[in-house]
Amino acid sequence: MTGTSPGFDRERITSEIFSHLVELAALELKADEAEYLRHELNGQLNAIHELENIVIDDQLPISSHGVPYHGATAAGLREDVSEPGSLADDILNQAPQLEGRYVVVPDIPHRELE
């Protein structure tokens, strides 16, 4: 293989795009982590670049999962019956901060309505 494949761009994820993604992902990164992650993201995008060159008929359906479900194999709907839960305390006990049976969170960012 010689030359560069059409549409190939080594730096798709610029620093600006990267910062936006980090904000969306709700992550806080150290500088060395950020540098590594941006480098790997660009490497991965270059590795999947060939997907863009596959000729795909617009009529080709998507596969959101491999095995098709149909009447015979799909799980039926569950009966709508209430079952008493017994795990509430076990589940609450996993919360990092509790007050009584309330989960505690810090201030939720908000704006006063005018």
């Binding site: 997907l51 596959i54 795909i56 080709l60």
Partner: peptide, 13 residues
């Protein structure tokens, strides 16, 4: 990307 990858998945299937 995503829509295209799901169509490629159809080709693999």
């Amino acid at each position: 990307y995503y829509q295209r990858a799901l169509r490629v998945r159809t080709l693999i299937r």
